[in-house]
Amino acid sequence: MSTIPALVGTADTARAPAGGRHGADEEHVRRPGRGGLLEAEERVAAGVGRALEAVFAAVAETRAETAALLARVTDAGRGAVSADLAALRPGLHLRLEREELVSGVGFVAAPGLLTDVPAWLEWWQSTAEGDVRPLLLDLDPRQSAYTDYTHWDWFALPRDTGLRAVAGPYVDYLCSDEYSLTLSAPVELAGRFAGVAAADVYLRHFEDAALPLLRELPGPAHLVNARGRVAASADPAHLAGSLTKGHDFAAVLREARATDVAGSGVRLVPCRGLPLVLVWRAATA
């Protein structure tokens, strides 16, 4: 499934601004215009962050509604069943309609959570015609080789870390057949992992949102995830889905500070609160 995961700081909200612009170790402005470039790259990184934070907001709403629903059912003294999750539908439909970037949204139950079925996805997608439809998976292991969804990064990362996560870009042949990013967060019931709330962003839609931002920079720019997989690009030399090699993007994200790649003019700028790095090259120095 080749999902490329990365973790995001907190379970619900973005961290305080952590970009290089206000950092104490920020390099000195070496020549006229550099300050403007630094501001521009920060603006681009922040714009990308805002686009995906809107998606994370939809995930957080789903997470809260699901957790409240599961708690209500449990308080009533019984185990949750798949039919209980139908109560999530109005909210899921609303988010599909409201969030331009979101093409699929829902709750994916941890196996064993529901008493009537071994596994369940309460998952809704928007169609090309603008309707919403449920995803109906064949979850019978005797018939399908794709019934175990617990290996996918969008499920495993929130489960294993307790944090919200961005998986991808990856080919989502389970749910949408689209090249996608999936943003997800863990749902808990009585302090135990109960499943994930998640939202799909098709990469072509993400490109629509990211490209105008990337083009604002005066040099070729692209966005990569923690493993260097290109998520959006305004640079024909680095197309979406390819790997940008030779940089430790995970370290850039850990340090949450923009850096220069020595001698190349390449800048690596973390998108605050998100596991994406803006890579761009200022026109030759």
């Binding site: 499934m1 080749s2 399908s144 080789a145 794709y146 870009p169 990856y170 080919v171 042949y173 057949d177 689209e178 090249y179 997989r229 889905g241 390819s242």
Partner: peptide, 28 residues
């Protein structure tokens, strides 16, 4: 039957590892 399902899944996963939604759909 189980073998043929997993055999097929390997090739779908290979297409996904190629980062190609089209090849993956064709393979499915």
């Amino acid at each position: 039957a189980a073998r043929s399902r997993v055999y097929g899944r390997f090739h779908v996963e290979l297409a996904a590892a190629a980062q190609s939604a089209r090849l993956t759909r064709e393979q499915v």
